[in-house]
C-alpha cells in the first residue's frame, strides 16, 4: 500500500482536527492547524517509529509541549495507524482517552502536557539517556512560541548545549499569536534565531508550511556536531482555513456547522 504523502497526511489531519473540536465544542484549533505541516513531514519522512509497537526501543521520541494543540497530533497518529481513526470521534467525550490536552495514555504519545514548559526538560532527559547509553535514536520536541515565556524552557535551552546533545531537536511553531494577544504585544521573542544561536544551538529558520523545506532540513540532522538543533518554523495560526488564519479568536472558538462545512470545503473536502 502506498503511504500517504506528507501533504495529504497534513490535509487529512487538519480536517479531523476541525471535526474533533467542532464535535467536542473544544478550543485551540488555531494552533493545531499551524503545526499540522510539521507533523505531516515528521510522521511520513523523518521519525523512525512503528505504529504497531509504540514502545519500540529504537524509535525516535516525539514530544508535544503545546499539549492544547493535540487534535492534529491525535489525527496524525491515527492516520499513521497508531490507533483506529474512528476513535477520533471520542475526542473530548466523557471517559475518552483522547483528552483535550495531549495524553500519554494514547498509543504513540510519549508524554502528557497541558501545562507549558514541561516537555523540553523531559526531552532533554531522554536525549541525555540516549547519549549516555550510546543509542542512536533522536528526541524531537515541538514547542509553541507563547510557551517560550516559561523559564523552564530557557533552563533547558541553557543546559542542552553544555552536554552537546545533537540528538535533541526543538521545533518552534512560531505562529506569532499567544493566548491574550500577539507575541509582539505580550512579550516579544525576537530576535529568536539570534537568541537561540547565542545559547549555542544550531538553528535553522524556514516556512513551517513548506514540506520540501522542512523535509530537507530535518533530513540532514544533526546540523552541527555537538550542538542541539532548533528549527524555527514560521507558521500561520489557523493555517488552511481562511477565516481562521492569523485570528486570535480561534485559540478559543469552536466552529459551528456552517463554519465547519466551509472549512472542510476549503481544505478539499473531509477524508
Amino acid at each position: 500500500m502506498d503511504r500517504m504523502s506528507s501533504v495529504e497526511l497534513a490535509r487529512q489531519a487538519r480536517c479531523h482536527a476541525l471535526q474533533m473540536v467542532a464535535r467536542a465544542r473544544a478550543s485551540h484549533v488555531g494552533g493545531a492547524l499551524s503545526m499540522a505541516d510539521l507533523l505531516g513531514v515528521l510522521y511520513t519522512d523523518i521519525l523512525r517509529f512503528r505504529p504497531d509497537d509504540p514502545a519500540w526501543p529504537e524509535r525516535d521520541r516525539f514530544l508535544l509541549s503545546k499539549g492544547h494543540s493535540c487534535t492534529s497530533l491525535y489525527a496524525t497518529l491515527a492516520l499513521r495507524g497508531c490507533f483506529p481513526v474512528a476513535e477520533l470521534e471520542t475526542y473530548g467525550a466523557d471517559g475518552s482517552r483522547l483528552m483535550s490536552h495531549i495524553s500519554h495514555k494514547v498509543p504513540g504519545v510519549e508524554f502528557s502536557t497541558g501545562s507549558l514548559g514541561h516537555a523540553l526538560p523531559f526531552g532533554l532527559g531522554m536525549a541525555l539517556a540516549a547519549r549516555r547509553r550510546g543509542l542512536s535514536h533522536r528526541v524531537f520536541v515541538l514547542v509553541s512560541d507563547g510557551e517560550l515565556d516559561e523559564g523552564s524552557n530557557w533552563e533547558a535551552l541553557l543546559l542542552a548545549p553544555q552536554h552537546r546533545l545533537d540528538n535533541l531537536v526543538v521545533l518552534v511553531d512560531y505562529n506569532k499569536i499567544q493566548s491574550l494577544g500577539s507575541v509582539a504585544e505580550v512579550a516579544e521573542l525576537g530576535p529568536l534565531v539570534e537568541k537561540l544561536r547565542a545559547f549555542r544551538w544550531a538553528v535553522r529558520e524556514l516556512d513551517g508550511h513548506n514540506h520540501d523545506e522542512i523535509r530537507a532540513a530535518l533530513d540532514t540532522l544533526p546540523w552541527e556536531r555537538g550542538r542541539p538543533n532548533c528549527l524555527v518554523a514560521h507558521t500561520v495560526k489557523g493555517k488552511g482555513v481562511e477565516f481562521m488564519e492569523n485570528r486570535l479568536e480561534w485559540h478559543y472558538r469552536s466552529p459551528d456547522a456552517t463554519q465547519l462545512a466551509a472549512a472542510l470545503a476549503g481544505l478539499g473536502g473531509a477524508p
Partner: peptide, 20 residues
C-alpha cells in the same frame, strides 16, 4: 549530572531520564 541552579529543569530532566 549537575543540572545547574535550575530545579524545574532538573526535575523534568530527571523524569525524562527515568522514563528511559
Amino acid at each position: 549530572l549537575n543540572a545547574g541552579v535550575a530545579e524545574q529543569n532538573m526535575t523534568g530532566v530527571a523524569a525524562g531520564l527515568a522514563s528511559e
